[in-house]
Amino acid sequence: MSLKEEVDVLQRIPLFAKLEASKLKLLAFTSERIAFETGHVLFRQGDMGDAAYIILEGEAEVLVNGPSGPVLVAVLGRDAFVGEIAILCDVPRTASVRARQRLVCLRIAKELFLRLINEFPQIAIAVVRELAHRLEMSNEKLRESVAQVEALKKAG
């Protein structure tokens, strides 16, 4: 896979969708393409995050620690963007991610991404837009949930 294809993948990620092609190319070029063997853990719940991953090939399992060991909560495939919260703010990983089969990712280091934001305000704006959009969606969901709860209460 060449840089061009990686740029295409990046373009499909909502967070990056509105960025200029040349910036995406720089992001792709400065990111590392990296392969994980089956069972390799990309990161563990509770660790501090240092990078986000975009899955290019293969599938990954998302595991959350439960009272009786890790619980599989999702399986992610091509074009999934994993661990992006960790590169935007300093929070520990909320889940572990493990390669379910041979997995090829584009690894976007936190440092690198933050520097790009620093250098190009338009990236920051795109990111803010995307996050605002997500927040709006969350609020929407929250409103719906509240409405449902109210409805249920009334129903008694």
Partner: peptide
């Protein structure tokens, strides 16, 4: 000399 090659890029392991 021992490796007699290149350690592969992009292999996490």
């Amino acid at each position: 000399n021992v490796v007699f090659g290149k350690i592969a890029y992009g292999e996490a392991a």
